[in-house]
Every structure is written in structure tokens, then in C-alpha cells.
Amino acid sequence: MSRKLGAFRLEVVAALVRVSLLTAMQYRASFLAEFVVGLLSAFGVAVPLFLVYARVPVIAGWNLDGALLVTGFFLLYNAFVAGLVEPNLGAVVDGVRSGELDYLLVRPVDAQLVISMRKVAPAAVWELFAGLGVVGVALSRVGVPGPGPVFVAVVLFVAGLVATYGLWLLVICTSFWFVRVDNLRYLLGAITDAGRWPVSVYGRGLRLILTTVIPVALVSSYPAMALLERLDTDLAFGAVATALASLALSRWVLFRALRNYASASS
């Protein structure tokens, strides 16, 4: 793939996002239906919390406000996955099977860029709003912390997003070797569902997996802990390192996979 200047890449990203937004907005009825779905699923995440905290004030060291904060970050993460990661990387799997991926690869842009930014699912915006709302409500109840904890929380959250993206890309890359893996992404979705609760709810083994192998705790529990000022900052550096490593590894595997890829026509 040809190397171009960073500015050019940004322009490409902007154009890709604009086109996919316009495409998705054509189907107004379905966009509105997705609004209801987004609202309901945010409800689905929050209602069990309210039910359990109506009976028990503190669970595994978390009170309702803290748990709400975790839930809010989890919804934001879900919006990222549903809006950006899943539509694009999911399409790669279909593209490998149908051969449509070839059309993307012949474009004179970085392959990873075009694979990862081609589509946006605008319906995820509702979950984004829900997440922002829940984080806002929770913060107004516990009090807004100073700039330091907010900075750490944001860094952790972004690092978590990057790490998850890397993991998704790795999983998707397996489709270059084993064609039929489209539902591996459902499995990934099912496992990351565990991020909706504070990570201390789980047993020690599971907790370790959720922080390192499938780093969904990085996205939900740790930013919340940072905002509640219950986190040591060393972890933030570790998280950033994990994210960068995951990104580099997935990029390396992707390009290896692409070299291996015998396309549908050849």
C-alpha cells in the first residue's frame, strides 16, 4: 500500500465517514426504529442495577453511583463498537467470502484505514447519548472530580477503545484463513457484555481475563475508578502500553493476512 501524508489520510477518513453517514440517513424509518432499540437496550443495562441496589446498598465495594458510572462508560464503549468497529470489521468477513474485499484493497489508500473507517452506523449515536447521559447523572451525584482524574479516566477509556479495536481486528483477521467465522464477533460481543458491571463483581480469574486478554474492564470499570479517585496512576501507563501493543500486533497480523489472501478471483 502506498504511503501518503497524514493530511491526506485525514481527508480520506472524513470523506469515507461523510459518505457512509449520508447512505445510512436515507433509511429514516429504520434510523428511528434504531432510536427505540438504543433507548431500550440502555434501559436493559440500567434496570437490573436499580433493582439490585434497591435491595443492597453496596455490592463488591461499589455503590449505585459508582456502578452507574461503570454502566455509562460501558454504553459509550458499546456505541463505539456498534457504530464504528462492528459495521466495518464485520463487513470484512463478508467481503472475504463474497470477494468484495478486492474492490477495497485496490484503492490507493492504506488498507487498514479503508477497512476500518468505511462505514459508520449512525444509529449508535443514541447509545452514545444514553452513555453520556448516564455518566452525567452519575457524576452529578458523586461530584465532578478535578482535571487530573478526568484526564486519567479519558486516557484509560481511549486506551481501552484502541485495545478493543485491536482485539476485534485480530479476530476478524482469522477469516482470511478460516472463511466462515462471521459469528466469532457475536461471541466477542457476548464476552464483552461482562463489562457492564464493576469488574470486582467477578471472580479473580475472570477479573484477570477481563483486564488483560479481553480488556473490557479497561473501558468501563477503570475509567470509573479513576473518576472516583480510587485508582493508582501506574495502571494508566500500563493500559496505554497494552493499547499500543494491541494496535501494533493487529496491524502486523492484518498485513500478514493480506499478503496471504488469495482473493476470490485469483
Binding site: P48, V52, V56, D193, W197, Y202
Partner: peptide
């Protein structure tokens, strides 16, 4: 996943 929450609560 749901069980983990209720298990902690109980």
C-alpha cells in the same frame, strides 16, 4: 454475566 452481579449482591 447477570448471575455474577446477583451472586455478589447476595
Amino acid at each position: 454475566v447477570m448471575l455474577s452481579l446477583w451472586n455478589s449482591a447476595a
